[in-house]
Design a protein around this nucleic acid. Structure first.
Length: 723
DNA sequence: TCTTTGTAGCTTTTT
DNA sequence: GCTACAAAGA
């Protein structure tokens, strides 16, 4: 017990041992957030305030949930099974599986991931004969998801114009289609389980009585619906003395909120304070990760944001090294310099795994990769294709899904002609129409196809029926193996040139099933029913946990990733690259409400990843969308205290080894202005000319005004002066 | 059915 | 400039 609380600092201790009440813990970067969360759970249980079954802990990622479980297992002698610990989606899935009837879902409902959802929407638009130029599927998907994230059903959605009312019609049809197929998308998992609890009084009472402590990680990332879900479960506003509200313990950091673009609502933090009448907020401000200069820089940066809850990180680790700022003259030069620097660091004994190269956008990794590759430096890029996203895996899963639920049209459409079995576009379309006319699934339409039982489509239906009956009694791994062998997938990939990797991945899928089954066997708690090792649970697992990005992390390798994916990680040495106006902060952010602030938080996250040494690099010239762009240094560089920085540069006046790219030095129009030149505009201020077109009266130049964004201006009107 | 050609887009991402 | 995905040809 005392062990549990040893080594906690005062605010951490206060948070962990808070009496039963609602709480918001503002946990700065590197302040021991996860530790507080897990120790809180361990403390509550070991002091007998609540049993494991009374705990509900929610995270956003499977990784975080796993981490929490591992740490808890190390802290507590008792088993952790009675607790509900998982992601929002994982827990909702569990809830819906347990009460599928009440939720209006079939027992074996399937989960659509983002790619499946997009495919489903495309199919829908086709069936409805909607012009997919005017209503791009991706945009529609975003429209639907955004509504679900707000808790808004199609029936409640507001149409402010013709265009939107059409989109709402599509939303209505999409809901209908999903219901008919027995599938739910990610947003639906949340919304459906919210509605289930809201409508079903006894069920709500049951869970309210059970979960006395609800703990939330990364609270700043919750969207409207997730917050509403939490309030509902916690029994917020309940006046029933027999069912008092559960304690909501939320941990988060408003300064690290970087997911507004996918619906995260920072306002939830203030709402939480107000609605739960929190007397005070506990702040964890002592940072155990970074050295002083790095923290000072981070603090100075984030101070520029308005409306913060307020927090200042400090450390007793000492100032450490200055922050190195490097101005390169091109993206290639930037990458080369970084590679040189890495070589030196490695020579000095720094582990390559402790070196991270961060960038704003994935496209930036290419130049870096190229230089690393050329120099023979091992590296690992995070964020590529994930295991369950591979096409061969998706195909295999589609067969499995059809066995479980033949009405799953997305799965049907995916494999009806894969491997090819002579079902071309015309027969597929005919089937589509038949299904639409009969308002039934493709599978049902195929099964009822008049007459010709010898047709290819009928053969496909029989194949699925056969697979289902043949595998009915097989254990999961053998089942999957059987399907891979008898669906024709193995045969197909055997005959393909690069099929070997794919076959290995399919074998890996069988492995994954073996692991899944053995995990399920050790977790035979009655509450773990969602993980009972059956096929449908495995499929849910596959949808909810996309698996590792990349298998080979064997080598000692430099880590490359976007700033977003670096959140939660830390490294001895961090390079933040591409610190240029328009890139970081990204130009699209300028148009969005509070866009710059979100970019600044992103920068804050990036800076606070570094433990000992931080490099900030930018280039004067960058190849973007096939064009050379001339860029101003990021405003974020100016927001850092100069005394913390150590600047060096190979740009600005120094002779250039490789020179300016040929042909890019043309003048803009006949005005004598050059691309790359800084100019002043009366309204927009100072910017850099990045492109030009036309001549004479028609001459226009594109100018990067940084915060002011990118503008095309007519030379005859703009009155630009050199700056 | 497979291959070739064309064109749109191109910030971040977990579930 | 490159990639991904869709429509058109062999």
């Amino acid at each position: 017990m005392s062990d549990l609380l040893a080594h906690l600092n005062a605010p951490q201790l206060a948070a962990v041992t808070l009496p039963p009440q609602h709480a918001l813990i503002l946990a700065g970067a590197g302040s021991g957030k996860t530790r507080v969360l897990t120790t809180r759970i361990a403390w509550l249980i070991s002091t007998g305030q609540v049993g494991p079954a009374g705990i509900l802990a929610v995270t956003f990622t499977n990784k975080a949930a796993k981490e929490m479980l591992t740490r808890l297992a190390a802290m507590l002698p008792i088993n952790t099974r009675g607790m509900w610990i998982g992601t929002f989606h994982g827990l909702c899935n569990r809830l819906l599986r347990a009460h599928h009837r009440e939720a209006g879902l079939p027992a074996e409902f399937q989960i659509l991931d983002a790619a499946d959802q997009l495919a489903a929407i495309k199919r829908l638009l086709k069936a409805l004969a909607v012009d997919d130029q005017k209503y791009p599927p991706r945009e529609l998907m975003h429209f639907i998801n955004a509504h679900k994230e707000q808790g808004i059903r199609a029936a409640q959605a507001e149409a402010y114009d013709r265009y939107t009312s059409r989109r709402i019609e599509c939303y209505v049809e999409y809901e209908r289609q999903c219901q008919r197929e027995g599938v739910v998308d990610f947003g639906e998992l949340l919304l459906r389980s919210y509605e289930l609890l809201q409508r079903n009084e006894p069920l709500r009472q049951h869970y309210r009585a059970r979960f006395r402590h609800i703990l939330v990680d990364e609270f700043q990332d919750t969207n409207r619906l997730q917050y509403a879900w939490l309030k509902l479960l916690a029994g917020h506003g309940s006046t029933d003395p027999d069912a008092p509200a559960a304690c909501l313990f939320a941990v988060g950091d408003d300064d690290q909120s970087i997911y507004a673009f996918r619906g995260a609502e920072i306002g939830n933090m203030r709402d939480l304070q107000r609605e739960f009448e929190l007397a005070s907020v506990i702040r964890l401000e002592q940072n155990y990760r970074s050295q002083g200069n790095i923290l000072d820089a981070a603090n100075a940066l984030i101070r520029q944001n308005r409306g913060r809850l307020g927090k200042n990180l400090w450390t007793d680790a000492g100032a450490g090294e200055p922050i190195r700022v490097y101005a390169a003259f091109s993206d290639t030069d930037e990458a080369r310099r970084i590679v040189d620097e890495i070589a030196e660091l490695v020579r000095d004994g720094v582990s390559r795994q402790q070196i991270a190269l961060l960038y704003r956008a994935n496209a930036q990794s290419r130049v870096l990769e190229h230089q690393l590759f050329t120099a023979g430096v091992p590296y690992r890029v995070h964020g590529g294709l994930r295991f369950f996203d591979r096409q061969e895996i998706r195909h295999a899963l589609a067969y499995l899904r059809l066995i479980v639920n033949p009405d799953d049209d997305t799965a049907f459409a995916r494999v009806v002609n894969f491997p090819t079995r002579g079902i071309g576009t015309r027969s597929a379309e005919a089937l589509q129409e038949a299904a639409h006319a009969a308002q039934c699934s493709l599978y049902a339409a195929a099964a009822n196809l008049p007459g010709k039982s010898g047709s290819t489509i009928a053969r496909f239906v029989r194949l699925i029926e056969q697979l289902r009956s043949e595998t009915a009694t097989l254990p999961l791994p053998e089942l999957i193996e059987h399907v891979i062998d008898h669906s024709g997938l193995r045969q197909h990939y055997l005959g393909e040139r690069d099929g070997q990797d794919r076959l290995e991945n399919l074998d890996e899928l069988v492995n994954a099933a073996t692991v899944f089954v053995s995990d399920a066997a050790t977790a035979t708690d009655e509450n773990e029913r969602s993980d009972d090792g059956r096929l449908s649970s495995f499929l849910a697992h596959a949808s909810l946990e996309a698996g590792e990005h990349q298998a080979g992390d064997d080598q000692e390798a430099v880590q490359l990733m976007t700033v977003h994916s670096a959140k939660g990680l830390e490294f001895d040495v961090v390079f933040i690259t591409g610190l240029e106006q328009g890139l970081f902060p990204h130009e699209n952010a300028a148009q969005e409400r509070d866009g710059i602030e979100e970019e600044r938080r992103l920068m804050y996250v990036a800076v606070t990843r570094a433990r000992r040494r931080l490099y900030l690099t930018h280039a004067e010239t960058r190849l973007l969308h096939g064009q050379t762009r001339y860029c101003l240094p990021s405003v974020f560089l100016d927001e850092l205290p100069a005394e913390l920085l150590q600047r060096s540069s190979r740009a600005s006046g120094t002779p250039r080894a490789t020179g300016t790219p040929a042909g890019k030095q043309q003048t803009a129009g006949d005005s004598g202005l050059r691309i790359g030149q800084s100019v002043r505009h009366a309204r927009f201020g100072v910017g850099v000319i990045v492109a030009s077109e036309g001549a004479g009266e028609q001459a226009r130049v594109q100018i990067n005004f940084g915060n002011g964004g990118m503008k095309w201006l007519a030379l005859s009107l703009a009155r630009l002066t050199p700056a």
